[in-house]
Each structure stands twice: as structure tokens, then as C-alpha cells.
Design a protein around this nucleic acid. Structure first.
Lengths: 222, 222
DNA sequence: GTTTTTGCACTGACCAGTCAGTTCAAAAAG
DNA sequence: CTTTTTGAACTGACTGGTCAGTGCAAAAAC
């Protein structure tokens, strides 16, 4: 009844993770609305500060509907996490594979992944924000979910680095897990700063700046 | 500028809100305990999920004491933020200046700042965690405090980059603010991952890996 | 030197409000 | 018919903040 159409911050429609194949289209749409509402609210205020009443109101549904569709507030949040990182991982993997298929170098693959990361953050800033805010917390209910999901994403970067080392494109001295984390951090923080403090800049612009840094073209040699 | 003397090892110690001369040692000690308790609890659970009762209990004081020393929960948190980033900024600046005084290049200065950042995170992991979790949130009471304080820290990195460009050590093409953010992110995320997932590694080890990345010695040219 | 007063720092029971989660009858959708 | 949604009332636990009162060490008075 409340004609409340949310902001288009959708986290996307991934294929139902083979849970209940009997998820009707109607129910799915309701869930989608709840995801959208939750992602922005939690990004802004944090999980604990966001109430279920708020989520329901923003989604334009009754509170009872939230509990009809999700077992609890945390379950809703956990599914949000899994889904969002799933999207990112798929996007990174696709970028890497596409580059490889076109005969690009590993540096090119890394660069393509940087861009894919930027595109993702550009599209789902609220999700990214929320993810960063929760990732390094301890003692939380969804910690294990978060770890698993993080590893999936970072593993894609690590994979490319390892291939690069094996192919002699990268120095054998590099520390793969740590370098992967550093690269992810570079993109993450640069992008969040971009969205927060210089939102008018273009993606290409930001990408170019990061490419330069990635390829060591900062120090004047060249 | 709050002219404080002898900064204790812990994150706390801010200027007292009221009388400057009357800060009794006893009161100062109590505040210190409250800072320490708050920083770890908030890092673990987030601001909203952490109760004042918990903070008081962990600090070993009564709840009323918290409100005797701080106007509110958020004020306590804000003072924590200001102080912590103050420490980091000072540390970064010192690293840069020391390098310059010894005739090091700007890359050396950057490298020294990376190490200073790692040392800081190694010493105050909880504070770092908490800072990252709150930085990009919107609509929060302490947003402006956070912005100011962030800029102070990033400005130090930007300063070195600008000097480097002016001196011809860095390419004129680099985007100073964005590159600074990316560098900070690189260190931040790598360090948080280090502390979270490979805490047994040495600081030197992590520093070496980041140095390699910083100096573009990743791609096999060596 | 002893007694009394002062006021800072601290205490913890208490209050008014909030929130996640439950329940359910009834309506809408399919 | 069945599935899904509604919406409001209710519960019980928890929370930020308050406040009258306590303890105590140094100053003041004697």
C-alpha cells in the first residue's frame, strides 16, 4: 500500500542458490526489495543501529513480511553478504578469463580486475561500504560466512598472481596472499574515497590513476 | 593544540573537556582505562552494539563514572578517534621528516611511511579496525570529526607525493589525492589481513612484501 | 596535633524508552 | 483452494542516561 519505491541500489538478481526451487516470483520480488532496503540502511548506520521496522518501511512491506521471508535479522544480512560477494567474485573471474582469452598478459588481467572492481563499487557502493565495515570484526555471528566469502574473492586475485609467477611474468619473490590483499585494498580504499569525496570523477579517470600505480609508473622511470 | 606531555603507550589520553589545570591524576587514569576498554569493544562489535555497561565493566568502573568523565557515549568515541589519528599522523610525519633529514629519496620516504603505518597498526590493531569500519559511513554524528582527522593523515602522504613530483622523482601524471588514498588502502588492508589471518608473520616480512609492490618490483623486471 | 569541613571522583539502583521477535485473524494474490 | 502478505498488538529483554548518595584525602579550623 505504501507506494514506496526504493532507490535503485539493487544488489542484483543472482540465480537462487538452489535452496528452495519453489521460490515463487512474487516472493522473490519481496525478498529483493528487502535486500535493497537493508543494504543501504546498514551501510549508512551499521547492522546494530538499523531496525527491522526501518527495513520493512523502506522496502514498503509490513514487518510480518520480513519474518515470513527471513528467519531473523541476521539471516537476512548474511544472505545479503553471500549474494553480494558472489556477484563480485563472478565479475572478477570473468574479467580475468576474458583477458586471458584475448591473449593479454597477467598485468593486463590484473588491470582488468581492477576495473571490474571499480565497476562493482561504482554500482554497489552501499554494499561495498557495508562489507568493509564488517570484514575485520571479530566475535560476530556471521564471521565464518564473511571469511569464506572473502576468500572466494581474494582467491581470484591470488590465482592470477600465481599464474604470473609460474609464467615468469612476476618475480618469484612476491608474497602472493599479501600482495593480493594489498591490491584489493588499493582498489577498495581508492574507490571508496572516490565515491565519498570526489564522486564527480569518471571511472576511467580513476582507473587510469590506479593503472599507473599498479604498473609502477609512479617513480619517474619511464 | 592540546599540549599534552608524556604520551602513555595506550590509545587514550585526550585533552579534558573542561578545566585545563585541574586534571587530577586519578581522573586521568580512569579516562585511560575507559579508552582502552572502549577501543577493543567497539572494534569487535561496532559502536551501536557496544553498551556503556560493557565499557564500564571492562574498565572496572561503575557506569556512572563513564558519564562523569564523558558527556555521552558518542563523545567518548569521538575523543578516541581524534586522539588515535593524531598519533598516526604524528608518526607518519616523523617518518617522512627523518628520511628527508638523512638525505633519502621520496620513495624512501614513502617506504618509511609504509613502515610507520605498519608499526602503528601492529601496535593499535583495534583502533585501526574501528577506524576503517566507521570511515565511510554517512549520516553519523561524528562524520565531520572523522573527515577532518582523515584528511590530516592523508595529507602527509599527499605532501610527500607532491614534493616528489616537484623534484622530478615522480611522474607528473600521477593523481596525488587518489594515489595517496590508494597507498593508504594498500597498507591498511594488507596490515589488517596480516593481523587477522597471518598474525604470526613478522613486521619486517610484511614490510618487505609491500616495499616490493610499492617500487614496482612485482612485474618481473629485475 | 586533632577534629571538622569541603568538594572531587565515583557508585549503582533506577527510569523511560527502544527493539527483535511473536502472534494471529483476515485480506489479497494466484 | 493455497500461498503470501498485512498490520497491529504484545512481550520481554536490554539500553542510554540520571541522580541521590558514598568515600576519602587534603584544607581549614581549633
Amino acid at each position: 500500500m505504501n507506494g514506496r519505491t526504493g532507490v535503485p541500489v539493487t544488489i542484483g538478481v543472482m540465480e537462487r542458490s538452489s535452496t528452495t526451487s519453489g521460490g515463487s516470483a512474487r516472493r522473490e520480488a519481496t525478498r529483493q526489495k528487502l535486500y535493497e532496503a537493508a543494504v543501504t540502511l546498514i551501510a549508512e548506520q551499521g547492522f546494530s543501529a538499523t531496525t527491522v521496522d526501518e527495513i520493512a518501511e523502506r522496502a514498503g512491506v509490513a514487518k510480518g513480511t520480513v519474518y515470513y521471508n527471513f528467519a531473523s535479522k541476521s539471516v537476512l544480512f548474511e544472505e545479503l553478504l553471500r549474494h553480494g560477494v558472489g556477484l563480485l567474485t563472478a565479475s572478477l573471474r570473468e574479467a580475468a578469463e576474458k583477458t586471458a582469452a584475448q591473449g593479454g598478459s597477467r598485468v593486463d588481467a590484473l588491470d582488468a580486475m581492477v576495473r571490474a572492481g571499480l565497476v562493482f563499487i561504482d554500482r554497489y557502493p552501499a554494499f561495498t561500504q557495508l562489507y568493509v565495515a564488517e570484514l575485520w570484526r571479530t566475535n560476530r555471528a556471521w564471521q565464518s560466512t564473511l571469511m569464506v566469502v572473502r576468500q572466494q574473492a581474494v582467491a581470484v586475485v591470488e590465482g592470477v598472481l600465481r599464474e604470473g609467477v609460474a609464467a615468469g611474468e612476476f618475480s618469484e619473490e612476491i608474497d602472493v596472499p599479501l600482495t593480493a590483499a594489498a591490491l584489493v585494498g588499493m582498489v577498495l580504499v581508492a574507490a571508496l574515497d572516490w565515491k565519498s569525496f570526489q564522486p564527480e570523477r569518471s571511472l576511467d579517470d580513476v582507473h587510469a590513476a590506479l593503472s599507473r600505480l599498479l604498473q609502477g609508473r609512479v617513480s619517474g622511470h619511464r
